[in-house]
Design a protein around this nucleic acid. Sequence first.
DNA 1: ATCCTTGCAAATTGTTTGCAGCTAG
DNA 2: CTAGCTGCAAACAATTTGCAAGGAT
Lengths: 151, 151
Amino acid sequence: MTQTFEQWCGDLEARLSRNQQRLTPQRRLIARVLHGHDGHVNVDDLHQLVRRKDKSVGYATVYRMLKLLEDYELVQTNTFVDGTARYEIASKHHSHHDHLVCKECGTVVEFENEEIERLQELVAAQLGFDLVDHKMVLYGRPKLGTCCAKH
Amino acid sequence: MTQTFEQWCGDLEARLSRNQQRLTPQRRLIARVLHGHDGHVNVDDLHQLVRRKDKSVGYATVYRMLKLLEDYELVQTNTFVDGTARYEIASKHHSHHDHLVCKECGTVVEFENEEIERLQELVAAQLGFDLVDHKMVLYGRPKLGTCCAKH
DNA sequence: ATCCTTGCAAATTGTTTGCAGCTAG
DNA sequence: CTAGCTGCAAACAATTTGCAAGGAT
């Protein structure tokens, strides 16, 4: 279930104004670019993309915006590709997914698995916790010599 | 199933000499401290601990040693506590475990779950991969107001 | 007028590297 | 002697921060 930019940005604006913060043109632009991207952007690329629309936007603004979105849980941060932070939009209206990384070529595949999620809740419960969030990354080698994307 | 330091260090020495590398006093010391620690050490603390035994050991040596151990898969690296790298010994003789982090106080709890591991292999297989490795971190909030360790 | 936000540059943090000297084989 | 290893300091990369100026309420 995907969410339109307007909906997502509405969430953002609500959160911002609740904290007497503003949805400035720069922030809206960054939000739009991020929402349009298919995920796993790093800061550098995001900054580049934003600059294609507005040369004046600075690096720090992108970082600060991402931090905001992170705090508001409107993006999900990953570091599994190459250690540097990568971002994808997230919200309760987007269904949760996890990632599998190909050890051969680095391609990232997304997947969902209800069963595992259920077991994770169970495990947490057994340890005395309510499961709030989780990160799971699988690392695989492609079967049959055929690789996911490249080669 | 835990492994003695001697066994683990044997593995290390074997790997090293296979690559005409040496188990120097510094490296042995770092190995010993690391093996004695109960896990999730960061480089800084490890360096401190090592220095309590030998003031002369430098920061870079610790980093280089950890990289070695990582390459040889004799340590497992985590970054989930605060983003900086933390290490714990690992080997085929140590059973695999995953982590749950308390959102309240940051305490890390370890657990194992056969069922989830099986499902992970299944998911990978369905996507056309052989599962090589995985990382899973659960984030939880303690039930009943009682918290894991602190407070 | 106040307070949030911005871009820039400088600062910080975590980690890696170059190098001259040292050490084991 | 050769090759690996060390400590130190400098280099690096990713991210954060201080600050003076700009803009919204």
